[in-house]
Design a protein around this nucleic acid. Structure first.
Length: 475
RNA sequence: UGAGGUGUAGCGCAGUUUGGUAGCGCGUCUGGUUAGGGACCAGAAGGUCGUGGGUUCAAGUCCCGUCACCUCAACCA
């Protein structure tokens, strides 16, 4: 009987982007829903992507002088109340432990939604002198935020992330750190995830609770909506004062330190899916793909086919390529669809006919092109092609994004822009009323300030524009 | 919190109007034949019908309660 084609099983990316996303995430085996609402179980295939992200990021953190550490999951509630804006921003979404050991606790414990407070409390003990500075620590951890509506990777009650927390002697140094890590994220997003991003300062409304300034990294998804893919915060002396983090400077004066914090999360996996995927499923850039090449034997039982496939696998492994030989007895068509759905960048097909000719077919997931390759130098060809795919994916994403950035002079222009799935650059006077009005009438929010651009007037009130802002609907 | 909807096999559903042996498709498992875009044959396993009570000779089906989930609204660094 005629089965539903694979393409029909996955929602149409053009017509129903959210449904397409959910289908892909579940059907590719990245995650499953957890028993507690809003939680996800990250399955091995999804976690392998995260491990690749971790290792790429971690080497960049080490290269910029940071060290890893681990801080506790539970934070005394009183810590949050020490910084006024921080507690106000996070209180609604903090999960709290009230009982343990069969008794009610004398002080409730927050399950960390972020760790500025507990880092702050420890830094106040560790830092005494300018000689102790800077302190550059990162931690890989889980955090919990009790959001009302959730979606796998994009917004879940519990998620994995890294959070860097640094303390510095001067404002300049802390600001420099904030910007340096934002640049690290940008370079990583583009060269590893193949996602072009726009970085910039956030408005007061969108800034992190407790920060002096927040800088965001925004990525455009295929439907033109924006996803905040990472943030870097300059915290000034807000947390230093709240947690009494002081040092004796060279001039003999006691001073508060200046701190920064920055983080990216498993949301990056959601970004990967939505920035690159198509109607066949995922398309993963080679650098983070758990499997970079899949070998599909054709007529596997015929003489020499499996042996030749195993030989190719060995050669690729030796060259450092992550490769899977699909030895299951599914039909070739089934295998093609399965691995395409999972986003494997390259597929090598080898059957009796190819073997005789000393060739194989190699298929590119990103462009859907097939080409013949000589078996003799297949390892080298494959490696080169992986590099090409990595670069082409970034370039293709860049073109997609650049075609969807428009300018607007008034509210209607912003509305038309975002309805058409664009990022819209528009002037803004800087007042909260105008920002709120844009959100109310267009469902778009201010993502980041567009640096190096000047608009004359505010798109809402017509007064003099203080900034040019990128507006977009966001996930 | 306001409005609507859904709970029956791993997944998707029918069956409820009119009470009478628990069904279908996909998937899974076993054995075999196949193979260049989701192949085919044969066989098998799998269900406290969300949950508590009531009516009845008899309840997936009728009555009362309750829980969970989904959609929209609201809320949301």
């Amino acid at each position: 009987m005629a089965k539903e084609s694979f393409v029909e099983q996955i929602a149409d990316i053009e017509k129903d982007f959210p449904q397409w996303y959910t289908d892909v995430v579940l059907k590719t085996g990245l995650v499953d829903y957890g028993p507690v609402k809003g939680t996800m179980v990250i399955r091995p295939y999804g976690y392998a992507i995260w491990e690749n992200i971790q290792s790429e990021l971690d080497s960049r953190f080490k290269a910029t002088g940071h060290k890893n550490a681990y801080f506790p999951l539970l934070i005394p509630m009183s810590f949050f109340t020490k910084e006024a804006e921080h507690v106000e921003g996070f209180a609604p979404e903090v999960a709290v432990v009230t009982h343990a050991g069969g008794e009610e606790l004398s002080e409730p414990l927050a399950i960390r939604p972020t760790s500025e407070t507990i880092f702050g409390s420890m830094y106040s003990k560790w830092i005494q002198s300018y000689r102790d500075l800077p302190v550059l620590i990162n931690q890989w951890a889980n955090v919990m935020r009790w959001e009302k509506t959730t979606r796998p990777f994009l917004r879940t009650s519990e998620f994995l992330w890294q959070e860097g927390h640094t303390a510095h002697a001067t404002e300049d140094e802390a600001l420099e750190e904030t910007m340096k890590m934002l640049a690290v994220y940008k370079e990583f997003a583009e060269n590893v995830l193949a996602i072009p991003v726009i970085c910039g300062k956030k408005t007061e409304k969108e800034k992190f609770a407790g920060a002096v300034a927040t800088f965001g990294m925004e990525a455009m998804m295929k439907d033109g909506k924006s996803l905040q893919a990472g943030t870097s915060h300059y915290l000034g002396q807000n947390f230093a004062k709240a947690f009494d983090i002081k040092f004796l400077d060279k001039d003999g004066v006691q001073k508060n330190v200046y701190t920064s914090s920055w983080g990216v999360s498993t949301r990056l996996i959601g970004a990967l899916i939505m920035a690159h995927g198509d109607n066949r499923g995922l398309i993963l850039p080679p650098k983070v793909a758990p499997c970079q090449v899949v070998i599909v034997p054709i007529a596997a039982k015929k003489g020499g086919v499996m042996e030749a496939c195993a030989d190719i696998k060995a050669k690729l492994e030796k060259a450092g390529v992550r490769v899977i030989l699909d030895e299951t007895d599914n039909s070739p068509g089934w295998k093609f669809n399965e691995w395409e759905m999972k986003g494997v960048p390259l597929r090598i097909e080898l059957g009796p006919r190819d073997l005789e000719a000393g060739k194989a077919l190699i298929f590119r997931r990103d462009t859907l092109e097939k080409a013949e390759v000589q078996l003799d130098n297949i390892a080298k060809t494959t490696q080169q092609l992986l590099d090409t795919v990595q670069k082409d994916m970034l370039e293709a994403a860049r073109v997609r994004r650049d075609n969807k950035i428009v300018y607007a002079n008034d509210l209607k222009g912003i509305l038309n822009g975002v309805e058409g799935g664009n990022f819209v650059k528009a002037g803004w006077c800087g007042c909260r009323e105008c920002e709120d009005k844009i959100k109310a009438e267009t469902a778009a929010t201010a993502r980041v300030f567009a640096e190096g651009e000047t608009s004359k007037t505010c798109a809402v009130c017509g007064k003099k524009a203080e900034h040019t802002v990128i507006f977009a609907r966001a996930y």
